[in-house]
């Protein structure tokens, strides 16, 4: 009776065996589908392209901390595979918003940052956490809201004017509220109104989520919001809120790449971070950035800026 294995025990054992086998499979399987550097080199060797096969990087894993707009718009789905193919590096994209990305950078938990929060970036570099801050691309922010436009924003000339109207009319406004680049910009925009910090007002909603999720909330609440143009365009057909203000120079949205300071954060993969930075400003990547979304949305989502002078709109 003692020797007779019960069905339950057998079921558990087989689950365990499956797990053990799958563990082995997981180890072998993860590097297989072209993601690993080894697989990339083989692919490069067998394809008759004239591009020289990059030597296998010593530390192939690169953690990219970035904003949600680069992921939600799909831009990184184009850039990252191209970079991995060309160099053999393997990029781990953590899309969290610029504020959180720079916090990861400060702790040494990221190897390269692609962010859009200029004032915070300058502080990050000044505090000695980042080096080689380099201009990559820009687009702009737009103010969107319900087509009925209860606050009467249509026809306004400046962003200061529309923010004042929203505050005066107490029209529902959805904020990211996540200390991202977009959030920081939006918080600054209120400074022109008599209501410097609308936080806590009943009409001011904070999602604490990424741009895509926030656009969905704005659509459902029929509320006003400030969004980067890339995410807005990527949501074409998914959000029916029209643009109510655009073109104010204060709405410029600039993306920089920053490498965490190796002197201060020695554990980071500086070589890998620099390789990704070099790739972002390369002619190939800049062309991909400029072309991204052109076919699908009729207009580019980002404008490539590498090598151009620093924009001074704000």
């Amino acid at each position: 009776m003692l020797l007779r294995t019960s069905m339950a025990a057998r079921a558990l054992t087989s689950l365990g065996m499956f797990a053990a086998v799958s563990l082995l499979a997981a180890c072998g399987g993860d590097t297989a589908p072209g993601a690993g550097p080894a697989a990339t080199t083989t692919a490069a060797a067998t394809t008759p392209t004239p591009t020289p096969t990059a030597p296998k990087p010593a530390r192939p894993e690169v953690i990219l901390a970035t904003t949600t707009s680069t992921q939600d718009s799909g831009l990184l789905d184009v850039l990252v595979p191209a970079f991995q193919k060309a160099t053999g590096y393997q990029v781990k994209v953590i899309a969290v918003g610029s504020g959180a990305a720079m916090q990861m950078g400060e702790r040494g938990d990221a190897d390269v940052l692609l962010v859009h929060s200029p004032a915070a970036e300058e502080k990050f570099v000044a505090d000695g956490f980042g080096v080689e801050r380099t201009l990559v691309m820009h687009n702009d922010f737009v103010v969107i809201g319900p087509a009925a436009d209860p606050a009467g924003l249509k026809g306004s000339k400046t962003v200061a004017e529309v923010m004042k109207k929203i505050a005066d009319k107490k029209a529902t406004f959805v904020s990211r509220g996540d200390n991202s680049g977009t959030d920081v910009l939006e918080k600054n925009l209120w400074k022109g109104t008599n209501l410097t910090a609308p936080k806590g007002q009943s009409w001011y909603l904070e999602t604490g989520q990424g741009m895509g999720a926030t656009l969905t909330v704005a659509r459902e609440k029929q509320a006003y919001t400030v969004t980067d143009r890339a995410t807005f365009l990527a949501f074409t057909g998914k959000s029916d809120l029209p643009i109510l203000l655009e073109g104010d120079p204060a709405l410029l949205n600039v993306y920089h790449v920053i490498v965490p300071n190796p002197a201060r954060l020695p554990k980071t993969n500086t070589e890998g971070g620099r390789a990704f930075k070099a790739f972002l400003v390369s002619a190939d990547a800049q062309r991909m950035i400029g072309d991204f979304g052109k076919g699908k949305y009729g207009s580019p989502l980002f404008f490539a800026d590498a090598g151009k002078p620093e924009p001074v709109a704000r």
């Binding site: 689950l15 365990g16 799958s22 563990l23 997981a26 399987g29």
Partner: peptide, 15 residues
């Protein structure tokens, strides 16, 4: 497949 692998290993460890 990845979902199956990861959850079964975690369940196995937990068991």
């Amino acid at each position: 497949l990845r979902t199956a692998l990861i959850t079964s290993v975690s369940t196995f460890v937990a068991a």
